[in-house]
């Protein structure tokens, strides 16, 4: 492989990896607090991509992006309040089944409302006009995605580690009952968690749609599964782990095919193989806390 092609693939890995990372953060935050897989997260990502598609028809692109992110945030909170909140005291598996239900509901509602036909995504022209760097021709989008991701992750880390709601969030993930006794409004913090996670998912959805310029109701299924795997690989419950897992998964997917194009048909299987390998050898992931089952 030529050096130029290699560099190009490194950029691709970073772009795909950042997108996985952004979605993975939502999974890991919800899992850290409520201990279940929010299956509907990938579909919130899809809704984000649709929202900007329709908002962009009325308002300029940056405003549309903000509307999409805010809309997806609200959707995330709404899903939690209607489908997960009644099941807080139920076995965790019930919440998981409810999440699967929400996921199918959102996908099929999208088919009903937006129709199943794929639509072209919104792509501001300057983002997809190739620029020459050295001997390479790269799209500004390729740089932009990792940069935006880095900024968003910084912002999130600030909220989680430097603000009082963030402190409450971390406390809940340690011990929900004690946190409640400390006078923290658990429900509001959970809503905040869903809001933040869904906002990041929507941001990822917007950028994903620009990169693969098409949106359709099932576009969230595979990125969702893979991002969850990224979260597990990085260590579920850890935001930094989710970022690391996302970048790792993006690199594995892009590079494996770059070095061995005959594997391209197996692209969707890499993530699951990686998941099973990680779960066997490092059940708590790369950065996860090592905790034993208590008897």
């Amino acid at each position: 492989m030529s050096f130029e092609l290699f560099v190009q693939n490194v950029f691709n890995s970073m772009t795909v990896g950042s997108l996985y990372a952004l979605i993975a953060i939502g999974y890991t935050m919800v899992y850290g607090i409520l201990r279940f897989i929010n299956f509907a997260h990938g579909d919130v990502f899809m809704v984000g991509a649709y929202l900007i598609f329709f908002a962009e028809m009325l308002v300029p692109w940056p405003v549309a992006a903000l509307i999409a992110i805010a809309g997806a945030s609200l959707l995330g909170i709404l899903v939690d309040q209607t489908a997960y909140r009644p099941l807080r005291e139920a076995p965790r598996i019930s919440a998981l089944i409810s999440a699967i239900g929400v996921s199918f509901l959102l996908e099929n509602l999208a088919v009903v409302v937006f129709t199943g036909l794929p639509r072209p995504a919104v792509q501001p022209a300057w983002m997809v006009r190739p620029i020459a760097v050295g001997g390479l021709r790269v799209l500004p989008l390729t740089f932009l995605v990792p940069l935006v991701t880095a900024a968003l992750v910084m912002g999130l880390l600030y909220v989680v580690y430097r603000t009082r709601p963030g402190l409450a969030m971390r406390a809940i993930s340690r011990d929900i009952e004690t946190t409640r006794m400390m006078g923290v409004s658990i429900n509001r913090i959970i809503a905040l968690t869903f809001g933040l996670g869904s906002a990041l998912a929507a941001a990822a959805g917007i950028m994903w749609a620009m990169r693969y310029p098409q949106i359709h109701p099932y576009m969230g299924v595979f990125p969702g599964f893979k991002a969850f795997i990224a979260a597990v690989v990085g260590g579920i419950g850890s935001i930094r782990g989710a970022v690391l897992g996302g970048l790792l998964l993006g690199t594995v997917e892009v590079m494996a095919i770059a070095f061995n194009p005959t594997l391209s048909g197996y692209r969707d299987a890499f993530a699951f193989v990686l998941l099973i390998v990680i779960l066997i050898f490092m059940p708590t992931g790369l950065l996860g806390e090592k905790n034993k089952d208590k008897i």
Partner: peptide
């Protein structure tokens, strides 16, 4: 006719069962 409506109703049935009649 609304394509996809069937599965919307189905997802709602599943959620209804799991929330109200587990």
């Amino acid at each position: 006719g609304v394509p996809g409506m069937r599965m919307v109703i189905f997802a709602l049935v599943l959620m209804f069962i799991i929330i109200f009649r587990r």
